[in-house]
């Protein structure tokens, strides 16, 4: 067994100042994306319901009088309620109910996702509706 088999192990340090840079960058990015969610968006909202990444239903919320119920069929049934100013997943057969607990979507960009059913509900604003929020390499 040759002794040179193991590479020269460099010693680890618990903490270096540059580690703060990573934390700061992450915090800055978090604040940036959080702010984007709270920027008020005027104009008509459109609710977009997708399954398997494909849009299956689209509705301008301003056209709704009181309440509209849309049921997404499939292995896991998801029930979406659309209101003149908001949208909400009100029922789902999935196990953890994270989509239901997301609550009401009121702003453009708000999204409720049911990963088990692969269904998502997104509110879109008037403009730039098809641009992705971000592209991660």
């Amino acid at each position: 067994m040759s002794a040179g088999y193991y590479y020269e192990m460099k010693k680890l340090t618990l903490f270096k100042k540059s580690d703060l840079l990573i934390a700061l960058a992450a915090a800055a990015a978090a604040v940036f994306f959080l702010l984007r969610l709270f920027v008020p968006q005027g104009g008509g909202l459109t609710a977009e319901i997708s399954r398997d990444g494909k849009v299956i239903y689209e509705k301008r919320l301003s056209g709704i009088a009181d309440r509209e119920i849309y049921t997404v069929g499939g292995d896991i049934v998801v029930v979406v309620a659309l209101y003149p100013d908001s949208a909400q997943i009100i029922e789902s057969q999935c196990r953890d109910k994270i989509c239901v607990n997301t609550g009401r979507l009121t702003r453009a960009g708000d999204t409720a996702v049911c990963l088990p059913a692969r269904v998502s509900v997104t509110l879109k604003g008037e403009k730039a509706s098809d641009e992705p929020d971000i592209v991660v390499g």
Partner: peptide, 18 residues
């Protein structure tokens, strides 16, 4: 798998991932 709207979770994931 779903749509780009999932990036709504990004702020929470960044903080928690850190």
């Amino acid at each position: 798998l779903t749509s780009a709207g999932t990036f709504y979770y990004l702020p929470a994931l960044l903080v928690f991932g850190c």
